[in-house]
Design a binder for these strands. Structure first.
Length: 1064
RNA sequence: GGGUCAGUAGCUCAACUAGGUAGAGCGCCACUCUGAUAAGGUGGAGGCUUGCGGUUCAAAUCCGCACUGACCCA
């Protein structure tokens, strides 16, 4: 296998391996009879490529699906695609250069729908391959598509259930209309942008009294539909007589707070307050709208229109009097309905005034603004005409300014079952919890009725057939629930097996019952309705019933937080309305993928990081690991190149750790064990068969710890913490400690029980680590796994069982001891470094001054491990409470204390103090020495005057350590003697020979002949004492003259050596 | 304009649920090691915990108010 972890190479090899062994199919089949886990994929919309957010989402889904499979579940993994709807229509319109519905009609509905389907299919293909490119394993051959007849039927069926439940209604509502798309759009499809609009103050002349009401609006085009003026009945209003600079006067009614601003806008130079009124005084006053003559169709005063009414929403803003048109605004409409005022909307679905618009008929509303402003001025009704910058709603797809108009639409009257919605909501468990309890509850409580009809083409046709001369009562309509039912009812021949439920096919179908002909309403469903039925649509229900009966509702869904308003909601609404139940039991709500600086990504602004860039740069596994290393619970993620690189680095460490024992195992023909959890027969040398050493037992115990932690984190939907735990184990415990410790064991020449134990330990640990990382990094774990198992286990790591904790391998006391030893080792290394003695040179002794009994216990039990790691001949322990008797203390004087105490003598005392040495932190002993030094006997010191400083003996360096449970100081005695010098020089030789072996590119087990020539008699003699060490460590069969070998001259601690190596 | 969530070292995050000296990894700098070698070891620098107020003996933590960002709503 390659020396280096190369993600691209790994991915390429693994892709073809997966293909060769049908890895995915085998993994699915492996769990076919297991307990089911019904996961439902929230369908991405097929209008573009996979961006970072989709990639994060699918990576999370893939990881949790893999995890559940490893936990033994038969997981439903059918991917879905949301393929209908206005966004695709507008993209196709753009491609075809269309500007309005007229173009579509000319092009032909059927052809247009065909184009939309092709567009959606193309994008679906792109998404499928995007998702597969980073290793997502779902049932790619069998995705659910919202355009398939069986899926569309799932929507029809659900809607007919809703109708049966009495929750379908036809009615007028004020809706947001895109005049270009000529359809209603949902409130959450409205995007707000800052625009400049007219800002006009208009006078409405009162009928029975002097003066006029002043209203303000940014939509002059709604004035023709004015029906009433709203005031706040509790507000304060004033009647003022305002004077222009020309001396003309006007009597105006305005909210008190607004008087100054309004008069200044109107260019008045002076005014007097004539009277104060409360809002309720104004109610019932009648006025004549200024454009009454231009719009004769506007209902007359007789209907109760053109009067002042109270409005809840009115504030003392602008004028405090609100122009209200129930034919347009939502609040206006609702208040108008309460007041039983007629609805007057002179604007058509295309935003053009109808004949009812009188003088303005035929004009597009926004284009009519200028005429209306001019007409208002001509009628002397304009108080001020300005412009204002404010945020205004636009169609999310075509960016056209929306208009509020009242049209007939089909609704699911979700407000009738609000209590049930709230109750059902509580039966599902959300991660994080606040998402449900704050965000989602707020939304559900305020949710209006669901307008499900759209006056468009590319969607699921609304399956409603209305009778001739229909009264408007929803009870009298036919709602078709299935293709079979359609075939049975239709006047025409319909083959349920082949019928395409799209427009225009269904438009031509009529139904005749009891002599009455029913025709289909021309609308299609709001595309949100499509995905709302996914939990049964994905099971092909009602066409097939078995899966639905067994699986529904979903065990788990996971999407980003925008779906609280989207899919989480639409499913709750549809599930409740159709089936009385919520379609999912558990929700994982993740965040948005933002740019590294925290800004949102935006394709249109070119601010994105594309997943394939990341894969090209660092690989799919590192990208996945990064995406899975951040919390999946509600918080947004800022993408990080650095962290992705770190993930690659960590995988490289795993790669290196994995590679390290390979050559040794191969040399010794190690018979690797593959446990049953990996599909092995448990043959070979397992850890139960091996003579484990302390460090092996420690590593295995740590592994149990990590497995327990990781599993708990996964169960809490905190897979990022599980990843942390596993990576820390790999880097800290496995790589930095275990591998370092076992290196010498592995290098031993002959097979030994010790080596075998290390092999068995590594085999088991690596297998389980690879399994623990498989959901994160499916490629590299697969490759490592296949090397670890050969042909013994399952064909793929993804079939393996999730590793479980083996209680018998837990050794908490040992873990605690080793934690202490490692801390002591770190301090010892520090001390060695301070003393300038490298690890190759042994030291005579290490003294550990223990501050806790736990340190003593750890050293008693495993002191040899520390001795080995610190390369010391002996470890001495100083018990807690005792002091190491070779330590001395000097003192540092605090002059702010000495000064006042000793006056003129303070300087002399200080010098004596600084020269003094005592064996304990004993203030009296110190005072005695100072007194002796100064030849006085009246020296009294207090602890405030001095600070004791520890002094180690010569050749000794110390460093402190501390863990959660232990503390102490490690002293390293680096005094040389011939014994340590001899070994030190010998190891210098060994290390250089190793380097030369490497330079010569010798095989690891190649034997050599070595000639050592030392240009210093004493050193030469010291080296010679360790010939056996040298020959063994360097695999030198013999020492002696070398004819024509690799020869190199070295400087070792000032001594010249010539080494010559030849292979034998 | 309103709601929800977030803001801690250059980066990613801990510590926040029960207030008690702010930690880790990575990156950076210096030194070191060398049959895992694009690895390993030791040390170091690096923080007004976004800001301003409040509660408290004590606030990253609790409470207000701002600011910044994300999403949702209008």
């Amino acid at each position: 296998m390659p020396d280096q972890y190369d993600p691209a190479g790994v991915e390429e090899r693994v892709f073809s391996y997966w293909e060769a062994v049908d890895a995915y199919e085998q993994t699915v089949d492996h769990r076919a009879d297991a307990e089911t886990f019904f996961f439902v994929d929230g369908p991405p919309y097929t209008s573009g490529a996979a961006h970072m957010g989709t990639t994060w989402n699918k990576t999370l889904k893939d990881a949790y699906i893999r995890y559940h499979r490893m936990q033994g579940y038969d997981v439903t993994d059918r991917p879905g695609y949301d393929m209908h709807g206005l966004p695709i229509e507008t993209k196709v319109e753009e491609q075809l250069g269309f500007e309005s519905k007229k173009d579509i009609q000319e092009f032909g509905e059927e052809a247009f729908i065909e184009e939309c389907k092709r567009f959606a299919d193309d994008n679906l293909d792109g998404l499928q391959s995007d998702f597969q490119s980073f290793g997502v394993w779902m049932d790619w051959d069998n995705p659910y598509k919202t355009v398939d007849p069986s899926y569309m039927e799932a929507a029809w069926w659900a809607f007919s259930e809703v109708h049966d439940n009495g929750l379908v209604e036809r009615g007028q509502r004020s809706i947001s209309q895109c005049p270009r798309c000529e359809t209603a759009i949902a409130n959450n499809e409205v995007e707000y942008e800052d625009v400049t609009d007219p800002s006009i103050y208009v006078r409405f002349d009162l009928d029975d009294r002097e003066g006029s009401l002043v209203v303000w609006t940014t939509t002059p085009w709604t004035i023709p539909a004015n029906q009433f003026v709203a005031v706040d009945e509790d507000g304060d209003y004033q009647q003022v007589r305002a004077t222009t600079p020309d001396g003309e006067t006007d009597v105006l009614y305005v909210a008190s707070e607004c008087v100054e601003d309004v008069l200044s806008a109107g260019g008045y130079s002076d005014h007097e307050v004539v009277a104060d009124h409360s809002g309720s005084d104004l109610i019932g006053w009648s006025y004549t709208p200024p454009l009454a003559d231009a719009v004769p169709a506007n209902p007359t005063d007789a209907d109760g229109t053109h009067e002042v009414y109270h409005g809840d929403w009115v504030e003392a803003d602008r004028t405090g009097l609100v122009h209200s048109a129930p034919g347009h605004g939502e609040e206006d409409f609702e208040r108008g309905a309460e007041l039983d005022l007629p609805v007057f909307c002179p604007v058509g679905e295309d935003g053009v005034y109808t004949d009812a618009g009188g003088k303005y008929a035929g004009a597009f509303v926004r284009d009519a603004n200028d005429d209306i402003i001019a007409d208002l001025e001509a009628r002397d009704a304009m108080l001020a005409s300005q412009t204002v910058e404010h945020s205004y709603g636009h169609c999310w797809r075509c960016d056209t300014g929306i208009i509020q108009i009242v049209t007939d639409q089909w609704f699911i009257t979700i407000t009738d079952v609000k209590d049930e919605l709230l109750a059902n909501m509580d039966t599902s468990e959300w991660h994080p919890e606040w998402a449900r309890d704050n965000r989602f509850r707020d939304f559900v409580e305020n949710a209006p009725d669901w307008n499900v009809s759209r006056q468009r083409y590319w969607g699921i046709p609304v399956p409603i057939w209305t009778p001739e001369d229909w009264s408007g009562d929803a009870e009298d309509v036919l709602v078709v629930g299935t293709r079979e039912e359609l075939a049975a009812l239709a006047d025409q021949d319909v083959d349920p097996a082949s019928v395409d439920l799209h427009k225009p096919t269904v438009d031509d179908i009529t139904i005749t019952e009891d002599g009455t002909e029913y025709t289909r309403v021309p609308d299609v469903f709001d595309v949100w309705l499509d995905s709302s039925v996914a939990s049964w649509g994905t099971l092909n229900y009602p066409e097939q019933e078995n899966d639905f009966d067994e699986l529904w509702p979903a065990d788990l869904i996971m999407e980003a937080h925008d779906q609280t308003r989207g899919w989480f909601w639409s499913q709750l609404g549809m599930g409740t309305a159709a089936l009385g139940d919520v379609p999912y039991e558990e929700v994982l709500m993740h965040g948005y993928a933002n740019m590294p600086d925290g800004r949102g990504m935006s394709k249109s602004k070119g601010i994105t990081i594309e997943p394939n860039e990341v894969i090209d740069e660092y690989g799919a596994d590192p990208m996945r690991m990064f995406l899975l290393s951040v919390t999946p619970q509600g918080d947004d993620m800022s993408f990080s190149w650095d962290e992705t690189e770190n993930m690659q680095r960590d995988l490289n460490i795993l790669w290196n750790v994995f590679r390290f024992p390979r050559p040794y195992m191969a040399l010794d023909d190690f018979d690797a064990n593959v446990p049953a959890a990996f599909g092995g027969d448990d043959a070979g040398v397992g850890i139960a068969d091996a003579d484990l050493e302390t460090v092996d037992e420690w590593l295995l115990s740590r592994l149990q710890h990590v497995k327990a932690d990781a599993t708990a984190h996964w169960e809490d939907f905190e897979q990022h913490r599980a990843l942390d735990a596993v990576l820390e184990f790999v880097v800290e415990d496995l790589s930095r400690y275990y591998v370092q410790v076992v290196r010498e064991r592995m290098w031993e020449d002959d097979a030994s029980a010790s080596k075998t134990a290390a092999y068995a330990t590594m085999q088991r640990v690596l297998l389980e680590v690879v399994a623990l990382l498989a959901p994160y990094a499916p490629f590299v774990t697969e490759e490592l796994y296949s090397h670890l198992t050969g042909d013994r286990g399952y064909d793929t790591v993804h079939m393996a069982d999730w590793p479980t904790v083996e209680e018998s391998l837990r050794a908490p006391a040992l873990e605690a001891d080793v934690a202490v030893l490692r801390a002591a080792e770190e301090a010892g290394s520090h001390a060695r470094q301070q003393a300038g003695r490298k690890l190759r040179w042994p030291v005579t002794r290490v003294v550990v001054d223990a501050a806790e009994d736990s340190v003593v216990d750890a050293l008693d039990a495993h002191g040899d491990l520390l001795a080995d790691r610190l390369n010391t001949r002996a470890v001495e322990v100083v018990e807690p409470g005792a002091a190491w008797d070779e330590l001395a203390y000097s003192a540092r004087a605090d002059m702010s204390e000495l000064g006042p105490a000793f006056g003129d003598d303070a300087g002399a005392v200080m010098n004596a103090l600084n020269d003094a040495h005592v064996t304990d932190r004993d203030i009296d002993a110190l005072a005695e020495q100072v007194a002796a030094d100064l030849g006085r006997d009246d020296i009294e010191l207090t602890t405030e005057m001095v600070e004791f400083v520890e002094e180690t003996p010569e050749h000794v360096a110390g460093a402190a350590f501390e863990t959660e449970t232990a503390a102490g100081t490690v002293y390293v005695d680096t005094e040389l003697n011939e014994d340590v010098e001899s070994e030190g020089y010998a190891r210098e030789v060994v290390r250089r020979v190793q380097e030369m072996r490497k330079e010569m590119d010798l095989a690891m087990d190649a034997e050599i002949r070595l000639d050592v020539l030392v240009f210093d008699e004493r050193v030469g003699e010291l080296v010679a004492r360790h010939e056996p060490l040298i020959t063994e460590e360097t695999r030198a069969r013999e020492l002696g003259e070398v004819e024509d070998g690799h020869r190199e001259e070295w400087d070792v601690e000032g001594t010249t050596m010539i080494l010559e190596v030849e292979a034998v």
